[in-house]
Design a protein around this nucleic acid. Sequence first.
DNA 1: TCACCAAAGATTGCATACGATTCCAGCGAT
DNA 2: ATCGCTGGAATCGTATGCAATCTTTGGTGA
Lengths: 242, 242
Amino acid sequence: MATMNIEHLKIIRTGGSVEDRAQTIRDHLRDAIVDRRLAPAAKLSESEVGALFNVSRTIARAALQMLAFEGLVRIERNRGAFVANPSPEEARQVFASRRLMEPGIAAVACERATARDIEAFRVQLGEEARFIGQRGPAARRAEIKASGDFHLLLASVAGNAILLRFMEELIARSSLVIALYGKSGASSCGHSEHVDILDALEARDVPRMNNLMIRHLDHLEADLDLRLKEGLGLKEALNLPG
Amino acid sequence: MATMNIEHLKIIRTGGSVEDRAQTIRDHLRDAIVDRRLAPAAKLSESEVGALFNVSRTIARAALQMLAFEGLVRIERNRGAFVANPSPEEARQVFASRRLMEPGIAAVACERATARDIEAFRVQLGEEARFIGQRGPAARRAEIKASGDFHLLLASVAGNAILLRFMEELIARSSLVIALYGKSGASSCGHSEHVDILDALEARDVPRMNNLMIRHLDHLEADLDLRLKEGLGLKEALNLPG
DNA sequence: TCACCAAAGATTGCATACGATTCCAGCGAT
DNA sequence: ATCGCTGGAATCGTATGCAATCTTTGGTGA
């Protein structure tokens, strides 16, 4: 069904960590989904996932259920788990949620950011800059990921663990949405906006921060082409095998 | 530690629904936690939960993990699941998150509410009013729950499934926090504020709505006594090794 | 040739079994 | 009397087996 195969995942060292294995698998799967190494709507069979990571179906199942909670995977009873294939409506809701939350988060971050935080932002922006210079799908994915990390850094500076978790989910889903519906490399334009946002942060200019953040999110969403696939749920199902 | 026992849960009909049993169990457990029929820090053993609902540990475990994702249950490796015992800091973060999100949600709801929605609000407020007249812990719990449902209704009217889910988590955790740290019956005062908010909603008066919502949340949080148990967090930390 | 149906194959849902870890009671030593 | 140790009980972590469900394939009849 999915042209892109699960085999592309990295194999994990078997015995290494005593930590929760399901969590490790979830993280790797999430990375793969957000990076689009796993195509939307790809089937994630319990046995296959388990085999790839050298664990039983029990563990694989737990990892898949975690991803289902985050909205990155859809589980259908008696049918299995599939990489999420967000509808345009879902995409809109993801961005509506971000527009609702991020200005406030940015404001809090504005008040709390330390010099060390600012430095972390600079490093992060450096990462971003590295990728916008490069071409190719890999660099593009890395760019999307780095761009998301900027927003996550902002949320982590805000110092609210609950909001950070919400943002982690929204960023992950955004990455998926952008990969699905993004039409241009406008995210490079996103980079300069990130720079502006950091400026406002350093200046502790909350109103400007709010303004910039809202505009930034508007630009991100404006770069999506949400109308094409509006009615094509059926056709897409046919698209996958070809 | 937990004087309150898990036995107080209702027993479920065994064969009834073909639907997901883990979800049903999760719902019942969540109700019990939010209603404080299960004391904070109470142990939720997999076998016990499974026995109570006539399912295997597999299902019980899944339900407990769902609750852990929502922050209502804390799972410690090799030790088991416990009802969450939110720290004052967590309580503050819950309310900070609500202050960040709810004004925006209310604004959206303001624009989208239909006549039918308004009617649903009226019914909901009627429910609330019924409980504030009664005395006793049961009525008090019902009141907290009804109060939460008002906010959930608002979120559902806003029409964003993601935000609704976030709010469901925040409301559930709020109920827990209020039950833990609330000092007075000030939630009855909350009822009149709900009435005011509904008025603003009908009038489509977004700025007034924002104002009322922020004040309402401030009042809710002001009714908490977060300092008393402040030092108990430390004692608890020392409690763990001993 | 197409539509329909039946049986085989594959995959999930769930329960149970077994090893691993933690907790606790009892006992002996200091 | 207190502390530390040891053995057992309880509980969790994980793998695996069986039944139920879905999908597919091969065949049959119109």
